[in-house]
């Protein structure tokens, strides 16, 4: 699903060059649930941005679903973000003036899907994360956990190849955080491929594989033998 070979990212910071990623190799297969860990400045966020097609590598190769991403233009990258990637951010990143339903419809608006189908699919996605009662609420009328569930519904609605989560529990209390991890586990169970950046080992323990970055390189890549299980079913 994801194949990364000798990927390097160099930032020009004034007269200094900062190597955020140094010749990284990484493969993620379909239906994996991977967490990317590491201290700040380790390159994990840069990795995330490149996988998410928000940023380009300086050199090296990146294939997503066998498509080479490195050479694509802005519009093609936008198209990939729209159709193949679902983002879940630490700060939710919902548009405050839109209702939950309209927020979930947004990726489909950019995909050019008609209004009727958009609404139906957004309703289904919100139902899936347990928010069917809250579809007409604006983000500021929802709790943190609920906002993150809207964001997950939005990430899923275009049926992407991969779900990218950047510290998805970072702004949540531990109970809501656990809920969100439960949702991720259920989605993974149903076949979703998930890559999640976190710096909390307790959160990474819910995933099946942990990749650790330090100074722009992968220092460990281990399977989790017994992923932590949430007590309840969330979906």
């Amino acid at each position: 699903m994801i194949t990364i070979k000798k990927l390097t990212k160099v930032y020009q910071n004034g007269q200094f060059q900062v190597e955020a990623l140094r010749s990284v190799n990484l493969t993620v297969e379909a239906k994996e649930f991977v967490s990317i860990m590491g201290p700040s400045g380790s390159g994990k966020s840069t990795m995330m941005n490149i996988i998410g097609c928000l940023d380009r590598s300086t050199s090296g190769e990146y294939y997503l679903d066998e498509v080479s991403i490195s050479s694509l233009k802005d519009d093609a990258l936008a198209d990939i973000r729209n159709k193949k990637i679902g983002f879940v951010f630490q700060s939710f990143n919902l548009l405050p003036k839109l209702t939950a339903l309209e927020n979930v419809e947004l990726p489909m608006v950019y995909a050019g899907i008609g209004a009727k189908e958009r609404k139906d699919r957004a309703m289904d996605a919100l139902k899936k994360v347990g928010l069917e009662e809250r579809v007409y609420h604006k983000p500021n009328e929802l709790s943190g956990g609920q906002r993150q569930r809207v964001a997950i519904a939005r990430a899923l609605v275009n049926e992407p190849s991969i779900l990218l989560a950047d510290e998805p529990t970072g702004n949540l209390d531990s109970r809501s955080g656990e809920e969100i991890m439960g949702i991720f586990q259920d989605l993974n169970q149903e076949g979703a491929t998930i890559v999640m950046v976190t710096h909390e080992p307790e959160i990474a323990a819910y995933t099946k594989r942990i990749v650790t970055f330090r100074d722009g390189e992968i220092i460990s890549d281990e399977l989790v033998e017994n992923p932590l299980s949430t007590r309840r079913n969330f979906l």
Binding site: A78, N82, P107, Y110
Partner: peptide
């Protein structure tokens, strides 16, 4: 600016 970033992350092209 942030809204623009969000829209772009969801697949908005420059022309959108």
């Amino acid at each position: 600016t942030r809204e623009i970033g969000i829209r772009k992350s969801l697949g908005a092209k420059n022309k959108d």
